[in-house]
Structures are given as structure tokens and as C-alpha cells.
């Protein structure tokens, strides 16, 4: 399967990723060749094989729902682009 410019635009939108208009065709070409590589998978019949999500085939450990971390909001917000009164600021969302 090959991807065209419109496909790349819609995938980029899903990923919230701006792609330069002049690079879209190049991306379509490269992504198509990667998908071509990936589709070598289709030559193998995998009926009945259980998908493997974890390399050791185990599920993730859970812990008790206890507060272990102390609040370090100020420290963590020091690296933020814009904050006010302990909140992260973004352009206005609701009119």
C-alpha cells in the first residue's frame, strides 16, 4: 500500500504535527517505502497466535493506591514555557 500527500496530511493532523508543505511529497514517498518493508509481515500466516505485548510475557505490576510523592509543583513548573498561579497557560480554548 502506498500513501499519498492527502494521507500524510491527515496522519500528520492526527499526530498534531506540522509538516512543511514542501516536504509532504517526500514524506509520502519515504513512508510508502517503509510501509512496503513492513508489509513483508503479510507473507506469514499468524492465525491463532497470541499477540505478544511484553517481551517477558508478563503484565505490569500494580501497587497500593497510596500517596508516595510529595508535591513539587514549583520545581516542575520551572521548566514550563508559561505558568500563572500554579497553572500551565495555553491560548484561550473557550470563548
Amino acid at each position: 500500500m502506498s500513501l499519498g500527500s492527502d494521507d500524510v496530511k491527515s496522519i500528520a493532523h492526527l499526530a498534531r504535527l506540522e509538516i512543511d508543505e514542501k516536504n509532504i511529497e517526500e514524506h509520502a514517498k519515504t513512508l510508502s517505502s517503509i510501509i512496503g518493508l513492513v508489509e513483508e509481515m503479510n507473507a506469514v500466516d499468524t492465525t491463532g497466535i497470541k499477540p505478544m505485548a511484553h517481551p517477558m510475557d508478563i503484565s505490569q505490576r500494580l501497587r497500593a493506591d497510596e500517596v508516595l510523592e510529595e508535591n513539587q509543583r514549583e520545581l516542575f513548573q520551572k521548566v514550563a514555557p508559561e505558568t500563572k498561579d500554579g497553572l500551565y497557560l495555553v491560548p484561550q480554548v473557550i470563548e
Binding site: 496522519i11 500528520a12 499526530a15 504535527l17 514524506h27 517503509i34
Partner: peptide
């Protein structure tokens, strides 16, 4: 960017 696009496509 390429890998994000491929991954987004594969998971869509």
C-alpha cells in the same frame, strides 16, 4: 517525524 507518522498510521 517519520516515526511518529508511521506509528500514528499503524495505530489509527
Amino acid at each position: 517525524k517519520r516515526r511518529i507518522l508511521i506509528g500514528t498510521y499503524a495505530l489509527s
